[in-house]
Each structure stands twice: as C-alpha cells, then as structure tokens.
C-alpha cells in the first residue's frame, strides 16, 4: 500500500449552463493507493459522479491536478486520452450500458476493438473473462436476453477484459436486488484481492463492507462524516 494510484490535488469543477453556475466539486484533494478499494458515498447531487468522471478521463476539472499512475492525464491530447481510458480504466456504469445490438461476447470485446490484437485473440480474451464472471454459456446472447445481474456481470467482464489497473464503478448494484447485488459485490471484492484498484460510488451502506475505505462527499467537498457512517 505504498504506491499512489490516484492523486487529486485541489480539484474544482464548476458547471456553467445558461448563466447558471454550479460548483460540483470544491477543492477536493485525495490520494488512493494501488490495490485499494474505496467506496464513495454521499447525498444526491453531492458530486460523486462528477468526481468519478474526472477520474475517468472523461471530464476535465476547472482547476487542480489529476494524476493517475503518475500521469497528468488532462495534459494528454484528446486521442491519447482515449487510449489512456482504454489501457488504464475499466468502467462499470449504472444501468450496465451494454450495446443492445451486440452479443455479450461482442460487448466484452468492445475495449479490444481498436487494439491491434488478432480477432482470435480478442475472442479468447473475452471468453476468458466471461467465464471468470460465470457467463461462458450465455455469451452469445443479446443483452435483452440476459437478467439484470447477468448484464451487470457482462459489464464487469467488459471493464476488466483489457486488464486495466483501475476499475471505476458508478452505482453498479443500484438496480439489482439484494442477493444479486451481494454476488456482484463479492465479484468486485475478488477482483480487488487480485490486485485491481477499485473505486465505487454507492448509495447502499451494506456495500461498504466489501470494500476497504469509504469516503463521503457533501456539497462538493470531502466530508469528515465518514466516521459516523462506519
């Protein structure tokens, strides 16, 4: 637990829409170490998704420094930033976000599409992670032929197929029942044990027991209330 995976220094994010200004993040500084698993909690509108999208190289901050694995990511060009997302990050979105016209297998291959691997290699890599999440026998189904929990597993398989060091998940269990949600959380726990760094936004306090550290956001700031929650 020595090397720093994520380093945020004095991050501010202001959204401007039609004259209105919303300060979604206010002077946020945070270090997350390699191999850590962190849950992010807080009320709706407190800035959790904003924080995640800034870490996800999708949303540049208004000010402050974002370093992932020592790389100042927002100094990268647009195209290099896309490559960075592909190589460093695995996203698991709320609502799974699978492409409806691609099979589970093809959805998992998406992050490999623009890489220079052979088709066969891509297929094998995707099949392997699908087996890992227990969906080997259903990999040729379309997303709407899978249950919610199964779709979530496909989404996780897609996030890890490229073997990225960092997984970012935004309420991955939000729409699942408790039992399925717990299974998914166990999967995340397992992945973390294998060395992946996991950062997860969640509304469910029960989920925090599968993860190491919990940080709480309030009105765009990191809050000290974490003790209360734990």
């Amino acid at each position: 637990m020595s090397e720093i995976m994520i380093s945020l220094k004095d991050i501010n994010k202001t959204y401007k829409s039609m004259g209105d200004e919303v300060q979604a993040l206010k002077s946020v500084s945070l270090d997350i170490y390699k191999g850590e698993s962190v849950s992010v909690m807080g009320h709706s509108g407190s800035g959790k998704s904003t924080l995640l999208s800034i870490l996800g190289a999708l949303n540049p901050p208004s000010s402050g420094l974002v370093e992932i694995d020592g790389i100042d990511i927002y100094k990268l060009s647009q195209e290099r930033l896309a490559d960075f997302r592909r190589e460093y990050l695995g996203f698991v979105f709320q609502q799974f976000q699978l492409i409806p016209y691609l099979t589970a297998h093809e959805n998992v291959m998406l992050p490999l599409t623009t890489t220079k691997r052979s088709n066969r290699e891509k297929r094998e890599m995707a099949a392997q992670v699908l087996e890992r999440v227990g969906l080997k026998n259903k990999m040729n189904r379309l997303p709407n032929q899978l249950s919610g929990g199964e779709q979530e597993r496909v989404a996780i398989a897609r996030a890890i197929v490229n073997a990225p060091p960092l997984i970012l998940a935004d309420e991955p269990t939000g729409s699942l029942d408790t039992k399925t949600g717990d299974e998914i959380m166990e999967l995340f726990q397992q992945l973390n044990k294998e060395g992946l760094t996991v950062l997860m936004v969640t509304h469910n306090p029960d989920n925090t027991k599968y993860l190491g550290r919990t940080i709480v956001m309030k009105d765009g700031r990191l809050s000290d209330e974490r003790l209360n929650l734990n």
Binding site: G56, L58, Q78, E79, A82, D83, F84, R85, R86, E87, L89, F91, F93, Q97, I99, L110, P111, T113, T114, R158, N162
Partner: peptide, 16 residues
C-alpha cells in the same frame, strides 16, 4: 448519443 458515449468511455478515439 448514449452508445457513442460508451464507445468513447471504453477508449474509442474520435477518429474511430
């Protein structure tokens, strides 16, 4: 829109 957002988040370049 959503689909393109997913592609981009998964590391597709603009040119892709």
């Amino acid at each position: 829109t959503r689909e393109i957002g997913i592609f981009r988040a998964l590391g597709f370049r603009k040119s892709h």
